[in-house]
């Protein structure tokens, strides 16, 4: 049986991790390489690097960052941010990413998902969806860091992405992100029932209870950033607590 994955997410801008990282014992809390290695040592099952650089120049560091992280990391690495065409994904995979995430560009041009899946395979193709609740049980896709509605229904877009070959959905609740009020479990349940591929829950985690709720709602993996960066909890502590609740994790 597949184990639940715990995935720390590093937001990287211009080659440096942003969002305050408060680890003890790191020489450089802004280094994606040191952080990725630290999380692997804590028991992370996978690392996600999201490039949030505002400019193409800032994103110029992306390939270098992926290469440097790959040298030290012996768990899977997913990279997202700035992928517009299949060649962008190709250079990230070449640099050492195992999976590539697409978001805004795929909403604007869904054919991108088809191209990635055909060229690199479903297992490399992650579609990230940012969801905003519009009414109970209904969510719309938002893009450009939540500033814009894409005019699409989240469940319908998740289905289309999978039909086009997406092998995984990274689902972020825009309403919950950064609030520490827990995952949007209704959203997770709706999407995980609608698609046959794994669904990664993102946005809102602050407690073990939140992780447990997301998994009960159907998430196959959970992604979190600040809860780990702040040093509130280690990945190992989260896994230990979930195991104590009968959840199967890798320890």
């Amino acid at each position: 049986m597949l184990m639940v994955r715990i995935i720390p997410c590093l937001d990287v801008r211009d080659g440096r991790v942003v969002k305050g990282v408060q680890f003890q014992g790191l020489r450089d809390a802004g280094s994606p390489v040191e952080l990725a290695a630290e999380y692997e040592a804590q028991g992370a099952d996978e690392i996600v690097i999201l490039d949030v650089s505002a400019t193409p120049e800032g994103r110029g560091h992306q390939v270098e960052t992926v290469q440097a992280v790959r040298r030290v990391l012996s768990i899977p690495l997913t990279v997202g941010g700035g992928v517009r065409v299949a060649e962008d994904a190709g250079s990230l995979l070449e640099a050492g990413a195992d999976k590539v995430g697409v978001n805004t560009a795929a909403v604007a041009r869904p054919q991108l998902v088809t191209e990635l899946a055909e060229r690199y395979g479903a297992q490399c193709t992650v579609v990230a969806i940012d969801a905003r609740c519009t009414a109970p049980g209904t969510w719309e896709v938002v893009v450009r860091s939540g500033q814009e509605s894409a005019g699409r229904d989240v469940v319908a877009w998740a289905r289309e992405a999978v039909d086009r070959g997406a092998g995984e959905i990274l689902l972020t609740s825009w309403d919950r992100d950064g609030t520490r009020s827990g995952y949007d479990t209704a959203l997770l349940s709706a999407v995980s029932k609608a698609v046959p591929v794994p669904v990664i829950a993102s946005g809102g985690a602050a407690t073990i209870e939140h992780f447990h709720q997301a998994l009960s709602a159907g998430a196959d993996a959970i992604l979190a950033a600040s809860i780990f960066h702040d040093g509130d909890m280690t990945v190992g502590a989260v896994k230990g607590a979930l195991a104590a609740r009968g959840v199967e994790v890798r320890q």
Binding site: L2, M3, A122, P198, D220
Partner: peptide
């Protein structure tokens, strides 16, 4: 089979 998530992405015993 369709009874499980496909692709299998993750850690297994």
């Amino acid at each position: 089979p369709e009874t499980v998530r496909v692709p299998q992405l993750g850690w297994n015993q």
